[in-house]
Design a binder for these strands. Structure first.
Lengths: 349, 349
DNA sequence: ATAAAAAATGCACAAAGATGCACAAAAAGC
DNA sequence: GCTTTTTGTGCATCTTTGTGCATTTTTTAT
């Protein structure tokens, strides 16, 4: 078999090897489609790109700039506080690596429009000196946007798992966190432990990841998994927030003593709803959350997993730089473990 | 037997001794693949490199050194081939970062003993110039070993998830891989899809991870999960390999048309066992694996996930350096996505 | 519609990577 | 001490990759 190098890729695609080289070295003037083709073939052939080290003209080293895109829909009145923590980590690492940042709060729909344009660098995304060398995404965008953007520049997402988009993702370690929650409950003597989530208009991969981890944890701890205790996970099952509380209350009657909620805000709402029905947490049942947000006024602190957003920010920059070095490499999921916070919503049986 | 020196290694690999020398002396212009081969063979032959005392250029900074510990029990007759791919990635990145490597094949029990010693740096682990600045672990060690080692130096593990040990782990993305397998089967029209694994004397977190991902994938694709179709996952369930094949055959009778196996070697064995019972794959049922190993002689290639060991090696060095910079940071799980390989063991219903 | 600007790609050459040869320096043996 | 063995390094050679500049194609402006 022929040696896998740029020449081979060029021959197979009937283009000049120079073009192939430029696809890897983040040259600004490469057709996104060509780039996509080259990177895909490279991945297939198992070509491993290693950048040549010393740059030809050391003084020409212009400051590299990366874009940080924070998706904010116009109807959102207040910005989620989490983005601040991520930005802190991002800017800390960017400074250390001598990277300039271009932070933009942007409506996902607007970004999508910009990227529809066939030209390589949409005006709106053009930075002062030139083009971005990479992009970090915070909060959800559409898969289409992701694909269009990642063909142009190396892209990394924080906290959103674009399973279809094929980009690197920095996320909290859902699996480890849920395992901590389930084994905390098991340690407290709970045997009938349910899982619940809300339904959102868009698919939420994190919910499935957490659910999968819940099942895994039960089996690992030797507790049987009862599909009846997984609420709002099955496709087509679409309980409203109120129905969810009803079902939970009913299952508590049936002997369920603990619930793993897919997210803190869902859990706080549930606790309030159960309280209205005369069910007290943690007296009548224990509840755990995930995310570690501050409790709403007057609510007890949830037993939860605190997500280290700043470390995730740091990791996103590290990963982005690696992605830029090797654009055709395998996709990554870099997971940061959250810390368990024992609150007032779980108690021993 | 001939004396173990660089010449011997060079002869065995059919390369110039100079090249071998450069592999050890941290020369920057050495092909990572060559270096990996040399380091691996050297470790196997028991060649211990000791840098010549007075370096020619005294101003030349001494490289930091990290240890690569490959766990090999004495009863293992042949070394798993995968370690070489990991070493390739490790050496590539180590060279770029000016890190020297000390590769050792070691019996986990022996390492455990060394680490029992109260002194900070066990003699056996002392490198030529000084102590390791970090360690990369390949293949399983005991949790105790991990804890002892990670107290001394920053430690990263490849492919083994020490949930209790608290160290960073580089692994294949079990979740993404299993989702690829399940949705591949779903695309082919399969609705009754089982999951199976072998039981090992030690807990295998990867098996649970893959199982959790299987359940998650079913739910995400709108297929009901039937606990009866998860073989050898429940605690206490301990089917032998033969019993497993029996149960599978029986479930195929009951209308199961596809099986997700937790690992390739298990799947190949299953296919052989089923054949003896007159059940043909993929005619009577489809089977998928995980790992992407080469099919045993005369077997059809499995539909599987090919694990990119070299990229995992690269990632391990990156992570180790970050860990060294920030020993107190949150624990990470860095997952590299494998590539789906469509083989001859799955077909449309 | 037409000119101007920008993007995309190829060509030729320069620079870095990879490795062998010859020789020098260090270590080991006596 | 001297000789033999082992290891490190400069130099030469071939391979692979990056970049300036020219040319062609596409987009934008008038």
């Amino acid at each position: 078999m022929a040696k896998v190098n740029q020449q081979l890729i060029a021959d197979k695609l009937n283009i000049c090897r120079t073009t192939v080289s430029r696809c890897f070295s983040n040259h600004p003037k490469i057709n996104p489609e060509t780039r996509a083709k080259v990177l895909e073939l490279a991945a297939q052939l198992g070509y491993r790109y290693t950048a040549q080290r010393a740059p030809r003209n050391p003084e020409k080293q212009t400051a590299r700039e990366i874009g940080v895109l924070i998706g904010v829909r116009p109807d959102m009145t207040e910005l989620p506080a989490t983005s601040q923590y991520m930005l802190k980590g991002i800017s800390e690492r960017a400074a250390a690596q001598n990277l300039a940042l271009d932070v933009r709060y942007i409506d996902p729909a607007e970004l999508d429009e910009m990227l529809q344009s066939t030209s390589r660098t949409p005006k709106g995304l053009r930075a002062g000196n030139g083009t971005w060398k990479g992009a970090i995404l915070i909060f959800p965008f559409t898969t289409e946007t992701i694909v269009n953007l990642s063909r142009r520049v190396s892209t990394v997402s924080i906290a959103e798992d674009y399973s279809q988009g094929g980009i690197d993702c920095i996320d909290v370690d859902h699996h480890a966190g849920i395992y901590d929650m389930v084994s905390h409950l098991a340690d407290l003597g709970h045997k009938r432990i349910g899982f619940l989530s809300w339904r959102y208009s868009v698919e939420s991969p994190w919910m499935y990841r957490r659910f999968g981890a819940y099942v895994d944890s039960l089996y690992r701890l030797g507790i049987d998994f009862d599909p009846e205790l997984a609420l709002n996970v099955r496709k087509g099952e679409d309980l409203s927030v109120e129905q969810l509380a009803d079902t939970v209350a009913q299952q508590i009657e049936n002997g369920v003593t603990a619930w793993v909620s897919a997210a803190d805000h869902q859990a706080y709402r549930l606790i309030a709803d159960l309280q209205k029905k005369g069910i007290s947490v943690p007296r009548d049942c224990s509840i755990t959350g995930f995310d570690g947000i501050e409790p709403p006024l007057g609510m007890p602190r949830l037993t939860s997993i605190k997500v280290p957003f700043d470390e995730m920010g740091v990791s996103s920059v590290i990963r982005l730089l690696e992605r830029m070095k090797n654009p055709a490499g395998h996709r990554r999921h870099n997971l940061v473990e959250g810390r368990i916070v024992i609150g007032e919503t779980t108690q021993s049986l």
